[in-house]
Design a protein around this nucleic acid. Structure first.
Lengths: 350, 350
DNA sequence: TTTATTTCCGTGCACGGTAACGGAAATAAT
DNA sequence: ATTATTTCCGTTACCGTGCACGGAAATAAA
């Protein structure tokens, strides 16, 4: 970086025989410039390797850019609370000079609230948007609106199949199921495993657990083909029923030991697990919710697969910032993030 | 953050009836200011909650701050190569606006080269320094010189016992040994484990493996008290001798299966491991060197404990930046970082 | 009291861009 | 050819700090 002499807007003004004002106009594509001048300026920019000075720019316009973050409302103790924490983290980071963040929340079970949140985002006229797309079709509609307005956006957690986004940050879901199976079995064949699932009202949403389950089952097929997989459905809003459901299941299947859940709610099983201790049992779940980590610490849960949602958020925001401030595209569009394995011995410093 | 009206240096000049020049003088503690004026300005700053505008400051002085990074030379395939990668990562990060980085390297086996590197750092007159302190006593000398000049510095990887540093980023070594043991044994009692060590010429350097070994042994004492621990010493510069050493050891101790190393060189064992396959054997090592991750992928090594040296570097640099640019102290001085568990199933996205 | 020093502090330009304003040039309308 | 419109572009006043310069006030020396 021996680029000692910084090229300024004035340098290219002199070079082209035009004025700062004109150069500024072509830099910001705001017309009012003859074809001839435009070309001359572009050529000079290319030739001299001009790069705008971010500080000067920010100072001059005084106004910070807005990055809107569109995520499900972060009830305490939920996955989205972690993601929301990443916003603050990114905000603190020096990385975000000149960027202001604002979050817009929606009820993840109410598509109307998602639509409303989208509308509020557009009203705020953001320079960039981070989206956690739970509703596939509606997200596509929103994405189209953003593209129309030239607003860049990034997805976190999951992404729709349509294109046009700046970047995506998420966990490799299928692989995470695979990893989960390996952690549950330790690589040995096991006779049977219980999968605890949550009964969903509607199926229209994107459901990350489907891919996880697929990865899990493929691993088992390879490493433990004789293993039988049981399924129990529980209702998260009715904690009392959970114990009953598990009791009933284990009454009929006394040979089963290990338990797995593919969503972030493994902590719901803690009361039952504590009432039925078994030092040989492996219990594996997902996501570093506080309740989950507590269960890890006291030994109720053996292992968690975590995806650092705060880190995903931070990266998404930084990527957008880079693009907004200097039009820099990310190196990779789809970023599959590392899966952290958490046990009671390394959860302390997470 | 409804702090709509930004307080400027001019505001507090007006407030105190002084001029911005004087305010600037007290802000930068460069004397030439009467006691009376000094107090007035400080009071106004406090009262109005003035915070300097980083862009304007940077723009005005045009000169970027220098952060010097003092680490062992990063031969390809070594631990320090990973740390060096973190420098570039931090440089790319938006976080480092106004900060320029330069690294100064030394030979980790030559104390004179460390002294020379320290001198070069001082000559460069940096605004902050990141230090990987391999030589304890010499580092203390250097730290004293930095403090004398008022230059803030942060440690990564390990830290001397003396105080005065801005922050430290490293792995909890003792705990990492504990975690390592848990990954090696899976929580079950094992009859014996082989510890492969590197014969060192001098003992004066700080040696992270000591603490790791201590944690490892305490775990074994608790969970597998009858386990015998063997030690084999190898010479990393003589690859051929390694196989011989291992062959000799296993000839005498045929009952041993599992192998562990507490430094980053587990990859040295790959040839021997490949010649003596054993699907039941667990091999655990440290650090995400490329060679180690390759061994993980092909199944030669079971598990790695990694500490993200690049992330440590990034954080150290960002912390220094924050302090240099805005005099912000880090939330925590000693930052023990998360220990990542890497297996063949999650190494892909690391 | 006058002159020399020191201490203290106000003024003004620079940093690199932004954007409003209005004038000149080019084109269209009369 | 004259006037009205556009189109294009130069000028200029900021944005908030840093810092050099020099002047005023206070103090010391004559």
């Amino acid at each position: 970086m021996a680029q000692n002499e910084k090229i300024t807007i004035l340098d290219i003004a002199r070079r082209t025989g035009l004025s700062k004002g004109t150069v500024d106009r072509v830099l910001h594509h705001r017309g009012e410039v003859s074809r001839r001048s435009y070309d001359k300026v572009m050529a000079a920019i290319e030739e001299l390797g001009y790069e705008p000075n971010v500080y000067a720019s920010l100072l001059a316009k005084g106004q910070h850019h807005l990055v809107a973050v569109l995520i499900p409302s972060h009830e305490p103790g939920t996955f989205w609370e972690l993601a929301a924490a990443g916003i603050d983290k990114a905000a603190e980071s020096v990385g975000t000079v000149g960027i202001r963040m604002q979050h817009f929340e929606y009820d993840q079970y109410d598509i109307e609230s998602f639509r409303a949140a989208c509308a509020r985002v557009l009203d705020a006229e953001p320079s960039g948007v981070v989206i956690a797309p739970l509703f596939q079709d509606e997200t596509d509609v929103f994405a189209a609106q953003l593209r129309e307005r030239g607003i860049p956006f990034a997805y976190i957690d999951s992404k729709p199949e349509s294109d046009g986004y700046l970047a995506y940050f998420g966990m490799p879901l299928y692989k995470s199921g695979y990893l989960c199976a390996d952690q549950l079995t330790g690589g040995f064949a096991v006779p049977s495993v219980l999968i605890v699932r949550i009964r969903r009202d509607r199926q229209q949403q994107s459901d990350p657990t489907i891919n996880r389950r697929a990865g899990f089952m493929d691993y088992m097929l390879e490493h433990s083909p004789e293993c039988t997989l049981g399924n129990v459905f529980i209702d998260p809003n009715d904690p009392d029923s959970i114990e009953g459901a598990l009791d009933a299941w284990f009454r009929e299947h006394p040979g089963t030991r290990h338990i797995v859940m593919f969503n972030s709610r493994i902590h719901l099983l803690v009361p039952w697990l504590q009432h039925h201790p078994d030092s040989q049992r492996r219990v594996v779940g997902f996501d570093n919710l506080k309740a989950n980590m507590d269960a890890l610490r006291d030994g109720t849960v053996s292992c968690l697969i975590a995806q650092h949602p705060d880190e995903q958020m931070r990266l998404a925001i930084e990527t957008l910032s880079e693009y907004i401030l200097r039009r820099k595209l990310p190196q990779k569009k789809d970023n599959f993030m590392h899966m952290d394995i958490l046990t009671r011995y390394n959860v302390e410093y997470y």
